[in-house]
Design a protein around this nucleic acid. Structure first.
Lengths: 217, 217
DNA sequence: CGGCGAATTGAAACCGCTCAAGTAAAGTGG
DNA sequence: CCACTTTACTTGAGCGGTTTCAATTCGCCG
């Protein structure tokens, strides 16, 4: 599906919303075990979803940004398998299943919209597997930054300057490494001239080099 | 779902089969990109599914044994995202969707059967995530062996002596480590008295110790 | 029996982790 | 708005585990 077709479908869902939720940084959008009552889209801000592995440790499953659909885990399982926590003040639009179903009955675009939803779900599964597949921490970090930049670009942000909202600790948890390793990976990527980062602002300087670091020959 | 209910549903599907495939070790059951034309179950033997990551490297996604449903990737995506290769001479039973659909129309157990399929799909996703989550190679190996033993036991094999059909290289690829590391992990597990392994035959000697190695305190 | 891939084993390099100390940034209350 | 507190981040040294490279041995199949 093209980027513009995807945007159209997301906008369509966004306009269908019958509820707007304001969420402060650190607050929960939903908890593990909650029943799913609506489809939710991020209007602004960003969140993380967190699940509990069998060792009882918290593990970040995904980072969600503006225009992402959130809570898809529950569409498959009927209840949420994760906690969703805002990593900055955010606004989330919700569509009750009731309203969604009413609309889909008389909407010819429904199959395309469901395809949008399914594609997002699959793409995210893909990403997390891909990131974990990289053995070297620098590759993981490069992969993470490239993915984030692409996603930001797709929703209209300039890829010249990306705002990183998550903490090193959260990124580390997501990538399966330690916080110190994130510092060192950023330092290394910067030294090599692939990226530049100041405080929470980042830019990719050498895209090809970044890709080479993700997939070494 | 209980083990016996699961077995009943698998047997039901097995009896529905309208085609039997004999596959020699190393042969392909299907290729990446093939359209899915039927539901397949392993009657005997074992196979591996292999996908290509973006770096162009082959990566083993799952090992399938007797009574496993194979090719589920295509039920979600309409075409196969993996190659399926026999790791020993195997027999696969196939049910055309045509026949499957005819049967489900008048079968009251259909929802339970679909649940069996969905549960297998989910359980496998779970396993691969769990295995990759373990950072130490010995934990990965222990996790892999425990899972394999449990699966063998569930389909009626004695858990006193398990036949390992895959090569070290394949296991290494699956676990995201190197072949030499598999050798050393087995050596270490053996030294500790958790398992005994001779050639391709293995047994778990100390189940609790094995679990402790998977999840260190 | 010969050959060849599979498995084992050793040594050394590499990389991420732990621990620790110090600096920077963000949040809090007066 | 500043001082204070807390949290986030950086950086270094040493350790442990995995990879790499290389040399053998083992085991299977023709």
């Amino acid at each position: 599906m093209t980027t513009t077709a995807l945007k159209k479908n997301i906008d369509f869902l966004m306009n269908l919303a019958d509820n707007t939720l304001m969420i402060k940084k650190g607050d929960y959008l939903y908890h593990r075990g909650d029943a799913s009552t609506c489809i939710m889209l991020i209007f602004s801000g960003s969140l993380k979803t967190v699940d509990l592995n069998e060792g009882g440790e918290l593990r970040i499953k995904e980072f969600l940004i503006k225009q992402d659909i959130i809570g898809l885990d529950a569409m498959m399982d009927t209840y949420h398998s994760t906690d969703a926590i805002a990593i900055e003040d955010s606004i989330v639009k919700a569509i009750s299943y009731e309203k969604f179903n009413l609309f889909t009955l008389r909407s010819p675009e429904i199959s395309e919209i469901l395809e949008t939803v399914r594609a997002q779900f699959m793409a995210r599964k893909e990403e997390s597997r891909r990131v974990l597949d990289n053995l070297r921490s620098e590759s993981k970090m490069a992969s993470f930054l490239l993915n984030l930049t692409n996603r930001m670009g797709r929703i209209g942000y300039s890829t010249e300057r990306i705002q990183i909202k998550m903490t090193h600790k959260d990124i580390a948890n997501f990538l399966g490494v330690k916080g110190e390793t994130i510092s060192r990976a950023i330092h290394s990527l910067t030294t090599k001239g692939t990226i530049i980062m100041k405080h929470k602002t980042m830019a990719i300087l050498d895209m090809q080099l970044l890709k080479d670091i993700i997939r070494p020959v």
